[in-house]
Design a protein around this nucleic acid. Structure first.
Lengths: 145, 145
DNA sequence: GTGATTGCAAACCTTTTGCACGCCA
DNA sequence: TGGCGTGCAAAAGGTTTGCAATCAC
């Protein structure tokens, strides 16, 4: 019984695959649905272990390679974190992160103020900026001892 | 010939060690100085390779463990990035990051506007926020093809 | 002196690669 | 049918751990 979020959008998924010349396979669909139903920025391994319950023949590789492919075509994003395993998220509307230094949990939040931030011209003139995110870090409620 | 930044501050280093019950060893001093002289958020391996030129007997472990120790006592910080090797930086005044998605380069910049950002109450009430950073990502000048 | 720190080596975990088979378009 | 995608297995890369010897205090 998967907790599904309303984010799942098979049309959108299929369109993105087609426009990038990617075939629509059962593995890719399962991985997309699993990501859409996860709120916790899972690693490739976490996605693999969850998917295997409903798709036992899938391999870790396929999961990992598919997640990288999704990131490459902009369907998913690689979440910034303090090293360690790469973690993934579905690319969605603007959101920001709070990151717990102790347990590694990442919590999303929205902020209209943060969304309105301008890019400094020093950066805008030199680089192509594709994303803007505020990252707060500290200790989460579970970790304050 | 090391390019040293003015950040090196042996007094500060020694004080931080002492107040945390850490001994001041030649290895730790060399690692601190190397970090202070690096502008590029090096990984443990990068610090190790650079230090070995002037301190050939040092081991990778010592470098890695020392960097983690520095991060724990707040002398250095672990830089957020898209997975892969952990990267370190000296903890300094407020600064923000631009991160190149292609080559992984991380460029620091300052912004008074960004420094003035408030923490949303939704987060401030639940968590202990220790740091706040704006992370821009995209393509750097060298990678725009 | 003595307990923290180091260096070494092995273990561990995650990611990447090469290849043959199978399946989607 | 053709070629992309998958699964498997091995390699590579980075981090962590246990332990004996060493060094800072």
């Amino acid at each position: 019984m998967q907790k599904q979020q309303s984010k799942v959008d098979n049309e959108y998924f299929a369109a993105r695959c087609r426009e990038n010349g990617l075939r629509i396979t059962p593995q890719r669909m399962a991985i997309y649905r699993m990501l859409a139903g996860s709120r916790d920025h899972p690693s490739a391994d976490a996605v693999f272990r969850r998917i295997r319950e409903e798709f036992p023949s899938i391999s870790y590789d396929t999961v990992n390679r598919t997640l990288l492919t999704f990131a490459r075509i902009g369907l998913a994003e690689i979440v910034d974190g303090p090293g360690g395993p790469r973690r993934f998220d579905l690319r969605t509307e603007d959101h920001h992160h709070f990151h717990c230094r102790k347990c590694g949990r990442i919590v999303d939040f929205q902020s209209a103020d943060y969304d309105r931030l301008q890019i400094p011209s020093e950066i805008r003139d030199r680089f192509t900026v594709l994303d803007k995110k505020v990252v707060l870090s500290g200790l989460c409620d579970r970790c304050i001892s």
